[in-house]
Design a protein around this nucleic acid. Structure first.
Length: 602
RNA sequence: GGUCCCGUAGUUCAAUGGAUAGAAUAGAAGUUUCCUAAACUUUAGAUCCAAGUUCGAUUCUUGGCGGGACCA
């Protein structure tokens, strides 16, 4: 009877149910209008009796009661008028702790334990584009790019689970002075070498010449300075820099030789990127190349001039005045008529909208671009670009090293490929030491090492609030114990092991009181849909990582306290099997949203 | 010079204005004839400083100190 009743509540979270019930009780008790914003519902701290807590302080004035009176009256009314949803209550200081009936939790478990899609929402018929990764083609990917890639991928997955149609896109920064630097250095120092003859990945090969350029550039600056030239002039007038500038002009003029070299070297880089993306599991529905988009937005400049959003200075350059918005004046077209990044970006934003009619456009870009993105959105809005309001910058903090800044041009970076390789090697070592999967085939082992190594790395980079910069110590390897991916994977593998051995008997009705360890997991499981929604709203995968870890921890504690296969009764065994299965389903889909695979055994 | 962000255990991270500030790791002490010990249990350890708002501040406001990013 009760089970049936509670299953009709299943669409609503328990927090929501408590909110509504509390509003009803307050309104009838004190004959005033209350809303759920008048008070707060928290999880009850484990040291107190109860599941959820109504914080009473904010209600005292309006109700005209003391905490003790209000708590008693509200508690009694909640118990009386909610069909047994609440079992009991207690009041400590200004906190009304409510115990939710076991039947509610049992009903929730029964309804959902076998549902692999628990927590995901139906289609909302909205399209969102997530632009991420966006590499330069003059160097290989490093740790910072990995954070970007994992964030972009994960946010896309989270949004999919919330019912969005998601398009993953990438803008490849394949032109400009930085690419010319690698090209010049290759011409000067490579003697025609190609990645194949050196057995290098193409992106690493090209990156080597980018570093080489900077070494040579520095040397020439020193020479010119020694000859008496001021350092700033020396930077510009170093012969290698002059040659690079000349090459950039030749590229823009379409010089066939330069274009051929550019095509060849970019080709090397792409073949290298392909390998890295495949290894880390990144992919894109749409790839834009800046060499195709850099002329976009010029018509927008004209439109801006017509609308008087932009103005022309005497030298012919075009500007926008953002001082009324608390920002500066910003250049949108140089005096020589070439456009700047912001102009292209507006052009591309418009193109994305035209092609896909996207409702939201998320840009995963480092926080060093906060100002740029703010200006981009503002200008787009002032111009009346269709997609302007949809622009959303997912700004993430830089990854810093304990040993100093990562600078590609100085070669002081943690390389993405190296790190991936190291993680996989470490997972291999751990696995071999433990010796639990000696019957695996070589292919199965390879998959397992990948799953665990990448799991550790992705979890490590995603467990931190994206907005905050994070610090990485290259001397210490990423952990496989504690608050880590492998911890969650291990919990999952243990559950799967049990599920392989035991069998479900769904004919058994389950009706008994829940032990603390049993209920704890169901209470945690109930929060999963809300966590996903929150993560989507905040574009924050760390919410999922933290949740999944806590659920795994709760389960591990349950596992060590209570036996499943040797439960006190068949009833209890079936209950615990359901709890285990629901946990496994949630862990798997939560980790999937972080881009992390789950091993059936490890 | 201007704008913005960040200061929490030794370290890396949590905490929609709420109860005794949570974890992980490193440290100390335990758990394996029993479903996978990559686990579990116990223990010690922190809000940069100073005012203010509030019944209540890690959270909000102001000022300092320290770190970072961006703009010209």
């Amino acid at each position: 009877m009760l089970l049936l009743l509670f299953s009709s509540f299943a669409a609503m979270s328990i927090v929501h149910l408590i909110q509504e019930a509390t509003v009803r009780s307050l309104t009838s008790l004190y004959e005033q209008t209350f809303t759920e914003k008048d008070f707060q519902i928290n999880l009850t701290k484990p040291e107190f009796e109860g599941d959820y807590t109504v914080v009473l302080f904010s209600l005292l004035k309006k109700a005209g009661k003391s905490t003790a009176e209000l708590g008693e009256e509200l508690g009694k009314d909640l118990i009386k008028n909610n069909h047994g949803l609440f079992k009991e209550y207690n009041i400590i200081k200004g906190f009304l702790n409510l115990s939710v009936a076991d039947d509610f939790w049992l009903s929730l478990l029964k309804e959902n334990f076998h549902n692999a899609g628990y927590g995901s929402q139906a289609s909302n018929s909205k399209t969102v584009m997530v632009e991420y990764s966006s590499p330069n083609t003059n160097k290989p990917l490093h740790l910072g790019h990995l954070r970007n890639n994992f964030l972009g991928w994960s946010v896309a997955e989270i949004l999919k689970n919330c019912g969005y149609r998601v398009l993953k896109s990438c803008i490849v920064n394949d032109r400009g002075i930085h690419i010319c630097k690698s090209m010049i250095a290759w011409q000067l120092f490579a003697d025609g070498a190609a990645p194949e003859n050196e057995g290098m990945k193409g992106d690493h090969f090209v990156g080597k010449y980018y570093v080489k350029f900077n070494e040579e550039h520095k040397k020439q600056i020193a020479e010119l300075s020694a000859a008496g030239m001021p350092e700033k002039d020396a930077e510009k007038n170093a012969p290698i820099m002059l040659a690079t500038q000349k090459m950039l002009q030749a590229w823009e003029a379409g010089d066939p030789e330069v274009i051929a070299l550019w095509t060849k070297m970019n080709g090397w880089v792409y073949s290298g990127f392909d390998v890295t993306y495949k290894n880390i599991g990144s992919d894109f529905d749409e790839t834009y190349f800046e060499s195709n988009t850099y002329l976009l937005g010029k018509d927008i400049v004209q439109k801006g001039l017509d609308k008087n959003v932009f103005y022309k200075k005497e030298d012919g350059s075009v500007w926008i005045d953002l001082t009324p918005d608390g920002l500066d004046e910003k250049l949108v077209l140089r005096k020589d008529g070439t456009s700047v990044y912001i102009t292209q970006d507006i052009g591309l934003a418009q193109q994305k909208y035209d092609e896909y009619k996207i409702d939201e456009s998320i840009y995963v870009i480092g926080d060093e671009q906060n100002y740029h993105m703010k200006v981009l959105k503002l200008i787009a809005q002032k111009l009346g670009v269709d997609s302007a309001d949809a622009i959303h910058h997912l700004s993430y903090g830089m990854v810093e090293l304990t040993t100093g800044k990562m600078k590609s041009r100085e070669g002081t970076v943690v390389d993405a490929d190296d790190l991936v390789e190291e993680m996989i090697a470490t997972s291999k070592r751990h696995t071999e030491e433990l010796g639990k999967v000696k019957d695996f085939s070589p292919e199965e082992l390879k998959d397992l090492y990948n799953t665990i190594g990448l799991g550790a790395m992705k979890f490590y980079l995603l467990r931190v609030d994206p907005k905050k910069r994070m610090i990485f110590n290259p001397e210490e390897s990423i952990d496989f114990h504690g608050f880590t991916g492998p911890f969650v994977q291990y919990t999952y593998a243990r559950i799967k092991s049990i599920l392989r051995k035991e069998h479900f008997d769904e004919t058994k009705p389950i009706s008994h009181s829940l032990l603390k360890n049993e209920k704890g997991i169901i209470v945690a499981a109930e929060q999963f849909p809300a966590v996903i929604s929150e993560a989507a709203k905040e574009l924050d995968p760390s919410k999922v990582a933290n949740y999944v870890f806590n659920l795994a921890k709760t389960f591990n504690s349950f596992y060590s306290e209570l036996s499943i296969s040797k439960a006190e009764s068949e009833d209890k065994k079936q209950l615990r099997l359901q709890i285990a299965m629901m946990t496994a389903n949630i862990l798997k889909s939560g980790m999937q949203m972080l881009g992390i695979q789950m091993p059936e055994r490890m």
